[in-house]
Nucleic acid binder design. Structure first.
Ligand SMILES: [Mn+2]
Ligand SMILES: [Mn+2]
Ligand SMILES: [Zn+2]
Ligand SMILES: [Zn+2]
Lengths: 146, 146
DNA sequence: CGGGAACCTAGAACGATTCCAATTCCTGGC
DNA sequence: GCCAGGAATTGGAATCGTTCTAGGTTCCCG
C-alpha cells in the first residue's frame, strides 16, 4: 500500500531542492525530511534529534522542533499523537490510521479496505465539513517478530 | 443514539452507592462522576476542578486528577485526547468517536452508521487483536448556533 | 559588498500531569 | 463505640515535552 509519490516530493537521496511545497529548504529541514523519509518508524522529535546528530552535530533540539513544525505546516509530513505521549512524525501522506502494537511499542500505518471512505460510515448531520480525521488503534499484531 | 445504561450505572441524582464497577465510591469520586454524567460537554480536568468546587469547596486539583484516573481505570468514564491539548473526559461508554467543531471549540460524540463495525473496514493482518480504537475528527458542523 | 529578513541555537519558561510526604478519612474487628 | 491499618485526599514540588526568547548566523537581492 505504498503510493507512488516519487513525482510529488524529491528523492531524499538526491540533491537538496530549493524548496518543497513552498517551504524553503535549509540544511536542517532537508536532513529532517530525509530522516523521516528514510526511517519510517514514526520517531519522536527527540528520536529525530538523536539520529540527526550523525549528520548535523551542531543542530539543536529547538531547531528539530522548528523543522518538524515547518514540515507539518506545509503538509510535507504528518504529526501523530498517541494519547499524551510525545508526538511522532510520519512521512506517509496517504489517508491512513496508526496501530500501536503494545507488545513491542512499534507503530504501523493502517489503511482502509478498498472502496471504504471513512467519512461515509459516520453518522454526521448533512453539511458537516470534515477537515481532518485521525484514527489510532491499540492492540497486538499476530506473530510479532520483534 | 443514546444507549439505555440506566441499569448499569447508578443515577447521578440518587444516593451515593458503595461502589461502581468495583471502585469504592468516595465523596470526591462520586461528585466527579455526577458532574461528568450531568455535563456531557467533555470537560478537562481543570474544568471539572472549577465546576466541582461549588459542591466540594476544599477539593484539590490533584484529587480531581486522582478521581478521573480511578474512574477511567475502572471503565466508568473515558479519557479523550485531541492532539496535545489537555485531556477531556466523557461518560459515554458506547463505541463512538469525537468531532471537534473548530468554529466554536465544542466537542460532539460521533457514532457510526447502523451495521458498521470499524474494525471490519480496516486493512489489518489476520489475527490482529484490537484492544482500543480512537477516532477524532476536526471540522465544522452545519448551522452552528453558537 | 551592505541591509533586512529568515534561520538557527542555547537556555529559560510554560503548562498539563504526576509525584511526594503529611494529614485525614474509612472500615473491619474488638 | 473505639482503634489500628490501609486507602484517599491535599498542597506543593517535580517532571518533561514543548514553546518562547534573545542573540548570533546565514541567505537573498539589489
Ligand atoms: Mn491520539
Ligand atoms: Mn487524538
Ligand atoms: Zn503513519
Ligand atoms: Zn464522548
Amino acid at each position: 500500500m505504498v503510493s507512488d509519490d516519487s513525482n510529488l516530493h524529491p528523492e531524499p537521496s538526491g540533491k537538496m531542492p530549493a524548496e518543497i511545497n513552498g517551504l524553503r529548504m535549509t540544511r536542517q529541514r532537508w536532513e529532517t525530511y530525509r530522516l523521516l523519509m528514510t526511517q519510517k518508524d514514526h520517531p519522536t522529535a527527540n528520536d529525530v534529534f538523536r539520529r540527526i546528530q550523525k549528520r548535523l552535530p551542531n543542530i539543536s533540539l529547538a531547531t528539530v522542533y522548528n523543522c518538524l513544525e515547518a514540515l507539518v505546516k506545509h503538509g510535507i509530513v504528518r504529526q501523530v499523537n498517541f494519547d499524551r505521549e510525545p508526538s511522532r512524525f510520519c512521512p506517509n501522506l496517504a489517508e491512513h490510521g496508526h496501530f500501536h502494537d503494545e507488545s513491542n511499542g512499534s507503530i504501523h500505518d493502517v489503511t482502509f479496505k478498498p472502496g471504504i471512505d471513512l467519512s461515509e460510515v459516520l453518522d454526521l448531520p448533512e453539511g458537516t465539513v470534515i477537515t481532518d480525521i485521525e484514527l489510532t488503534l491499540r492492540g497486538k499484531l499476530p506473530t510479532t517478530k520483534i
